[in-house]
C-alpha cells in the first residue's frame, strides 16, 4: 500500500476508543482503587485506604471459599458437559439429511435465549412439586417422595452447570462443526484404505484436528462459566446455598453495601478471567495445518 497520512484510522477508531476507555478501562482501574479502601455505604465516616486488608479479610473468610468451591464445580461441570455434548451435536449436525435445517434451528435456539429465562424454564424441570423430572420419576415409581433438587447445595449447582452448558453447547457445536467440515475427506479415505475402524478414525484423526477449535471452545465456555449470574438468580434466587464468586461480589456490593470488599472479590474473579483470556488469545492465534 502507498504511504498515506495516518489520520483516518485514528479518527475512525476514536468513538470506540473513547467509549471503551471511559466506560470500561477507567472504571476497571477505579474498581481496583476501591478494593484498596474501606468503603462501606453504611458507615461512610470510616472510609479510608487500607491497602490489601480487604483481600486478606476475604481470603480468610470461609464464605469466600464456599463460593469459590461452588464456582469451580460449576466451571468444571459446564466445561465437561459442553464439550462432550457439543462434540456429539457437531457430529450429528455433520450428517447430511433432509431435516438438517430443522436440527440446526433447534440447536441454535438455546444459545439465543435470555439466560435468565433459561433458568426459569429449567426450574420447572427440577421443581420439587411441579417439576417434570419428579413427576416422571414418581410416575415410573423410581422415587416415592419428590426430590428437593433445588434445595441441596450440590444438586443446585450441578443444575446451574447443566443450564449454563445448555446455552453454551450450540456455540461449541457450531464451532466444532465448522472445524469438522474443514477436515479434508481424503484423510478419512486413506485411513479407510489402511483399514482403520470408525473409532480409530475418531481418536486418531477427528479429535486431534479438532483440538485448536476445542481450545477456543473450552476457554470461551470457561469465561462464561466463571461469570455466571443470571441462571443462578432464576434457579435459586439471591440466596446463600448456590452462591458463586460473582454472586458473592454482587451481594457484598449491592446488598451489604460494602464496596471495598465487593471490589476486591471482583478483582479476584478478574485474575481468573484474565488467565482464561490470555489462553483464549493464544488458542485463537494457533493455526490449523492439514497435511
Amino acid at each position: 500500500m502507498k504511504k498515506r497520512k495516518n489520520t483516518p484510522p485514528y479518527i475512525m477508531l476514536a468513538p470506540s476508543v473513547v467509549l471503551m476507555c471511559g466506560l470500561v478501562f477507567y472504571p476497571i482501574l477505579v474498581t481496583f482503587t476501591y478494593s484498596l479502601q474501606q468503603m462501606k455505604l453504611t458507615e461512610p465516616q470510616n472510609d479510608k485506604i487500607v491497602g490489601f486488608k480487604n483481600y486478606q479479610m476475604i481470603l480468610a473468610d470461609s464464605n469466600f471459599w464456599y463460593s469459590f468451591l461452588n464456582s469451580i464445580i460449576i466451571l468444571v461441570g459446564v466445561v465437561i458437559l459442553t464439550v462432550v455434548i457439543g462434540i456429539a451435536f457437531a457430529m450429528l449436525l455433520n450428517v447430511n439429511t433432509k431435516i438438517k435445517g430443522v436440527l440446526t434451528a433447534a440447536a441454535i435456539i438455546p444459545w439465543a435465549l435470555p439466560p435468565i429465562v433459561n433458568g426459569v424454564m429449567w426450574r420447572w424441570i427440577f421443581h420439587p412439586s411441579y417439576g417434570f423430572l419428579n413427576r416422571l420419576l414418581l410416575r415410573c415409581e423410581l422415587i416415592e417422595e419428590p426430590v428437593q433438587w433445588l434445595s441441596n447445595r450440590f444438586s443446585v449447582i450441578l443444575i446451574v452447570a447443566l443450564v449454563v452448558a445448555w446455552r453454551n453447547i450450540p456455540f461449541c457445536a457450531i464451532v466444532l462443526l465448522s472445524a469438522l467440515q474443514g477436515i479434508p475427506s481424503h484423510i478419512y479415505e486413506s485411513a479407510a484404505i489402511d483399514g482403520s475402524s470408525t473409532g480409530q478414525m475418531f481418536r486418531k484423526i477427528t479429535l486431534p484436528l479438532l483440538m485448536p477449535s476445542l481450545g477456543i471452545v473450552v476457554t470461551s465456555t470457561s469465561i462464561n462459566a466463571i461469570n455466571v449470574f443470571d441462571e443462578i438468580v432464576s434457579l435459586s434466587g439471591y440466596g446463600d446455598v448456590s452462591k458463586t464468586l460473582m454472586m458473592d461480589a454482587y451481594l457484598r456490593t449491592f446488598n451489604f453495601l460494602d464496596y471495598g470488599a465487593g471490589s476486591a472479590i471482583t478483582y479476584i474473579i478478574m485474575i481468573f478471567a484474565g488467565i482464561l483470556g490470555l489462553l483464549y488469545i493464544r488458542n485463537l492465534y494457533r493455526e490449523v495445518n492439514y497435511l
Binding site: 470500561v24 465487593g262 471490589s263 484474565g274 483470556g277
Partner: peptide, 19 residues
C-alpha cells in the same frame, strides 16, 4: 487487537461499581 480480545474475558462486574 490483543487488548480487544482480552477485554472479552473481563467480567462486566469489574466496571459496574464505579459506573
Amino acid at each position: 487487537r490483543n487488548v480487544l480480545l482480552f477485554t472479552m474475558a473481563i467480567p462486566v462486574f469489574a466496571t459496574i461499581i464505579p459506573l
